[in-house]
């Protein structure tokens, strides 16, 4: 477990890039944290770290966005490649079944794929056992965030 305190959006993005550098394909990251805690910002950093050039926007409305990872330099982990980055947002979902209904769970643990999930506590029941948990908390200052990774 590691605890990080960031004091700006820039630092949260930098932490995301650092997380990305240690990712293997098939990994699932479950993010938990209140509105405004920095979940999407951290994910922007992870995506940048994976070499994704597209703008990462919030998937709250559409529930899931899938990005192709093309940069071999950023995605190469030994002989393993990360080719897909799946960004899921459970903010509007009421039950894990809805995530199953849209087929999102089929990406969990999938070869060549990294999955990040916002509001993951809502679908705890269907998360794979090896899921990496990231807890984000609001600091007392508007720019401070406390981020715990387990």
């Amino acid at each position: 477990m590691s605890k990080h305190i960031t004091t700006s959006e820039k630092q949260t993005i930098a932490l995301g890039k650092k997380i990305a550098s240690g990712l293997k394909d098939g990994e699932v990251l479950a993010l938990t944290g209140d509105l405004g805690a920095g979940k999407t910002t951290l994910i922007k950093g992870i995506a940048q770290g994976l070499g994704i050039k597209k703008i990462i926007t919030s998937p709250t409305f559409v529930l899931m966005k899938v990005y192709q990872v093309n940069s071999p330099k950023a995605s190469r982990r030994g002989v393993i490649y990360i080719r897909q980055f799946v960004h899921i947002d459970c903010y509007r979902t009421k039950s894990p079944q809805e995530i199953v209904d849209i087929g999102a769970d089929e990406y969990f643990g999938d070869k060549n794929t990294v999955v990040v999930i916002e509001w993951a506590e809502k679908i705890k029941k269907i998360l794979p056992r090896q899921t990496k948990k990231i807890l984000l908390e609001l600091g007392n200052n508007q720019n401070t965030r406390i981020i715990n990774i387990t």
Binding site: L35, K44, I55, T57, S58
Partner: peptide, 18 residues
């Protein structure tokens, strides 16, 4: 041009929640 993070309608929804 486009939003770099949340859509405007999403901001309305989330502020309503707050």
């Amino acid at each position: 041009g486009q939003t770099l993070d949340d859509a405007a309608g999403e901001a309305f929804d989330k502020v309503a929640k707050i």
